[in-house]
Amino acid sequence: MNLSPHQSKLIMPAMLVLLVSLACVSLLVGDVNLSIRQILYGLYDHTSPSAMIVWNMRIPRLLTALLIGGALSMAGVVMQSFFRNSLANPGLLGVSSGSAAGAVIAIACGWSAISLWFLPAAALVGAFAATLGVLILAKRGASTERLLLAGVALNALLGAFTSYVLSQRIGLYEKNAQILFWLLGGLEDRSWEHVFIALPIVVTAIFLLPISRSMDLMSLGWNEAQSLGVDVRSIRRRMIILSTLLTAFSTAVVGAIGFVGLIVPHGLRLIVGPEHKRLLPLSFIAGAIFVITCDIIGRLAGGIQLGIITSLIGAPFFLYLLRKLP
């Protein structure tokens, strides 16, 4: 699926046009039917009846989808480069499981009812604690295999913990429903507060760009990269921290969304090649496109949660991509 140099130059503008178009469609879709004219009125006239829906519901939802789609996709690129495996995903080091465990604790203990900020905060703490746990388990300077196995072990442990809490809350329908909603991942009722919580994603994504060249070399082997002049220890640390931040802020805001960080980088690499200077920014846009599309489909289908749609679309698409591999 090699692109000609001419096609290569066009891919970024083409993807931006697609993103803007989908953003417009996203504003039109929702429980309340609004015409294009009402949307435009809502955008420009804050006193119009549609302004509340557009500004307080649809735009925050759209921006949240854009940020977390971009973040998860970029985190996937980083993890795939880190593990030198195109099947790696952002949750491999236990970030998502840790985040889920933190959120589940916050819901089960009733903290999430106290303030809107408590649930994301608990999810963030869980994500960082899990990543720290993996790094300690794998010890300093560990090989990818060791990190991977530590991640698998921690993912299993935290998964068991989450299931245990869920099983102990049987009968408390409301809390169980909240936990399930969070574990499935969704964009329902996302507000400006959620957008603000997700904003560090932009800074984190920008911090990844200067190490894109080092990531090229790292993805062909750590020893090779070091022998060619990459400060492997420093780049490894930055890759883990930045990928954890991207995944943690996404999961803290919308819950566990699967497949974005796996299929978007994988598919994009087949189209634009593996060089991170292009792959990283394009993966942010492609991830946003994918999540916004899934969200539109979910809403059109009567309110199916985002996490279900990403998996429903992602899995067959992934199988299709695998068929294209040599």
Binding site: R84, N85, S86, D216, S219, L220, G221, N223, E224, S227, L228, G229, R269, G273, P274, E275
Partner: peptide
């Protein structure tokens, strides 16, 4: 150090299509 010494591994595993 990379400007002084270069190294080639015994086997190369290329996962990505550079």
């Amino acid at each position: 150090r990379a400007r002084i010494a270069s190294w080639i591994p015994q086997e190369a595993h290329f996962e990505f299509g550079f």
